[in-house]
């Protein structure tokens, strides 16, 4: 049985909930069982934010991810908070432009991607989340390339259709990055 338990975490405003939505819609496109659960609270831009995504071949029980096999983090407090919870053999995707420390665990695979720097270089400074997500999808294969595009077409509202190409470009940059 294939199942991915994913936590995406960082600061509010980095597009973390959106990244999770992209995965969730891709899962929907593939007809998989899934759940998407955001943190909610008196949070705002600059505060902490995270979301839990489960993609599975069977019914999703609890939507709360306690031990992720995939962790994507865009700030240090989130790495501190979730590093120890990752399943042995799991993967951690780190925006190394924003997080300077290394992963302490030796039983997980750490991927250091300077996502924010790559996004800035592309002239897309707000799409570091998509760069990191691109690397995540390429490495874990948790969803198909095809469904990623279908997902973006659904998630990006029609009035912002111009953002589609830019998001795809950022995702591709993440996929192309050779860590």
């Amino acid at each position: 049985m294939r199942e991915n338990q994913i936590i995406i975490a960082g600061f509010g405003g980095q597009g973390l909930l959106f990244s999770g939505k992209v995965l969730a819609y891709a899962g929907l496109h593939e007809g998989r069982h899934l759940s998407w659960l955001p943190s909610y609270g008196p949070e705002m831009r600059g505060g902490t934010a995270n979301c839990n995504v489960i993609l599975s071949d069977r019914d999703v029980g609890s939507p709360i991810v306690t031990h992720p096999d995939i962790l994507m983090v865009m700030n240090t407090p989130s790495l501190d908070k979730y590093e120890d919870e990752v399943q042995p053999g799991g993967s951690i995707f780190i925006d190394s432009s924003l997080i300077t420390r290394k992963v302490r665990r030796t039983d997980v695979t750490a991927h250091y991607i300077p996502a924010t720097q790559i996004a800035v270089d592309l002239g897309l400074p707000t799409l570091a989340n998509m760069v990191l997500l691109g690397a995540l999808v390429k490495d874990t294969g948790c969803i198909e390339d095809e469904s990623l595009k279908a997902s973006l077409e659904q998630v990006i509202p029609a009035r912002r259709a111009n953002m589609l190409e830019l998001n795809l470009k950022a995702l591709q940059a993440g996929k192309d990055y050779d860590a």
Binding site: L34, S35, P38, V60, P63
Partner: peptide
């Protein structure tokens, strides 16, 4: 409950 309200599912 809050979780049921906030979570997304198909």
């Amino acid at each position: 409950d809050g979780t049921m309200g906030q979570m997304m599912e198909p």
